[in-house]
């Protein structure tokens, strides 16, 4: 059987910038305060939710961004202790128990702020939300990031962020399976990838 390559496809035309997926990620992974693995950026002006151009000739879009699970991940190559590594199916993982907190991966990753450093003992507004995914694994002084909700993948589910996108903009699947929705979409539609010039070969595709 061919090796899997799990990818995410996001139709930016459908993205409303509503931040639902950002909060779904935060909730589903029980992320500590101020850690956002998945964020919605505005493609437009200098502030969030502002357009580019001059009234009334304006343009505004949104860019959901999280770890790009690169095929050639700069972070994996940078990590001196192998705390960040790639799974068989292409998911770039983060081993919080091994991470020494040098933050070299943050320096190496070209995708701004997708890797986040747990500056202090993780704090939760709601301590009851601690769970085996994320929360208990989150550790002070280590780096964390989107892990494509790998435990959910292992259970045959999709990542939290795409369980319900109100705009129905997200797709997830195995790109190496030509019958998958993602493979078909990438064949039929034009897409962008972020910072391809950095050579990372990201696994998040943005339909344009």
């Amino acid at each position: 059987m061919a090796k899997k390559r799990m990818v995410m496809v996001i139709d930016v035309k459908r993205c409303l910038g509503c931040h639902t997926c950002a909060v779904a990620c935060k909730s589903g992974n029980y992320l500590p305060n101020k850690v956002w693995w998945n964020r919605i950026l505005t493609v437009g002006g200098k502030d969030m939710d502002t357009p580019e151009g001059v009234f009334p000739n304006l343009k505004m879009g949104f860019l959901p961004i999280s770890c790009q699970h690169c095929e050639n991940p700069a972070c994996v190559k940078a990590c001196p202790v192998g705390a960040t590594y790639k799974r068989e199916d292409g998911v770039v993982m983060q081993d919080y128990d091994r991470c020494i907190g040098c933050q070299y991966c943050i320096a190496a990753c070209p995708y701004t702020e997708v890797r986040q450093f747990n500056v202090s003992e993780p704090e939760y507004y709601l301590p009851i939300t601690k769970d085996k995914i994320g929360a208990s694994a989150q550790q002070k002084g280590t780096v964390s990031k989107c892990i494509f909700c790998f435990t959910r993948l292992d259970d045959g589910k999709v990542p939290n962020c795409m369980e319900l996108c109100p705009g129905r903009a997200r797709y997830f699947g195995d790109l190496n399976d030509p019958a998958s929705e993602v493979a078909k979409l990438l064949q039929s539609r034009q897409y962008n990838q972020l910072l391809v010039e950095k050579g990372t070969k990201p696994s998040v595709y943005y339909l344009t």
């Binding site: 964020r39 919605i40 950026l41 505005t42 969030m48 995708y111 701004t112």
Partner: peptide, 24 residues
């Protein structure tokens, strides 16, 4: 000289409160 300069919700310790502007 960050690669992705688009504004969004700030993260981390210096998440500037009272602002949409991230650390960038």
């Amino acid at each position: 000289a960050v690669n992705i300069t688009n504004p969004g919700a700030p993260t981390g310790p210096l998440a500037i409160t009272g602002s949409y502007v991230p650390n960038i």
